[in-house]
Design a protein around this nucleic acid. Structure first.
Length: 211
DNA sequence: AGTGCGATTGACT
DNA sequence: GTCAATCGCACTA
């Protein structure tokens, strides 16, 4: 490390190095569970913001609720990238959804990131969201992308590499993981493919079901 | 080229 | 608890 680097303000990069790609489970459900407790890191011009992932949903192979169901289209092509890449899309004309592709290249499946417990850069996220309350900053898939200013630009990005957006290692065990049906979908609605950190106030929706 | 509809959110009764 | 905003995309013709 050179002298210039040593003088730079701490950016916490050392505390949240990217998840090694080889460490990501190859299976979508396993990845959805594995991502609970990991850190989503966003580097912006104003500084770094991050949060601990406390809620995910798996959209598995052959899942009628998944966007990859029915084959590749211009919108969903990122779901078919090697696991660990971002799939970002807009729903209801206003909310960006961030997913992590979850299988080998050519197979379309992904994990939706649904909620974060804010960590670094909280003032930045508060500014992005125009709210103060910590609990509501990133509780919900559209809220967390707004807090971290995640949009189309990150579609297809490798989240296992340090850059504007990446997945970082957590510094401790995640805790107990709960499971439930997924939120806001009509097809394949009864499968228990939503995962969350039990007892976390930063989880969206019900926290009462299974396990 | 026109149409219908969301992996949601925020405002409101 | 209910409800509408909003827009890119997939689908039909």
């Amino acid at each position: 490390m050179g002298r210039a680097d040593a003088l730079k303000p701490s950016r916490h990069n050392g505390r949240h190095p990217p998840l090694p790609h080889a460490e990501l489970p190859v299976n979508t459900v396993s990845l959805a569970r594995y991502l609970i407790g990991k850190i989503l890191v966003r580097e912006m011009a104003e500084g770094l913001a991050s949060g601990r992932i406390v809620e995910t949903e798996a959209y598995v192979v052959g899942d009628a609720a998944g966007h990859a169901y029915g084959g590749m289209t211009p919108r969903n092509r990122s779901l078919f990238l090697e696991r660990g890449h971002a799939y970002v899309y807009l729903v209801y004309g206003s909310a960006y959804m961030l997913n992590v592709s979850s299988e080998i290249a050519g197979i379309g499946a992904g994990v939706l990131i649904r909620a974060l417990e804010p960590r670094d850069g909280i003032p930045i996220m508060q500014r992005n969201r125009q709210i103060e309350r910590l609990r509501d900053l990133a509780r919900g898939p559209g809220r967390l992308t707004a807090a971290l200013r995640v949009d189309y630009r990150f579609d297809g990005l490798d989240l296992c590499r340090e850059g504007p957006l990446w997945l970082g290692r957590c510094d401790h065990e995640p805790g107990e993981i709960g499971q439930s049906i997924r939120i806001g979908i009509a097809r394949d609605a009864n499968r228990l493919l939503r995962f969350y950190l039990r007892g976390s106030p930063f989880v969206s929706g019900p926290r009462l079901l299974t396990e």
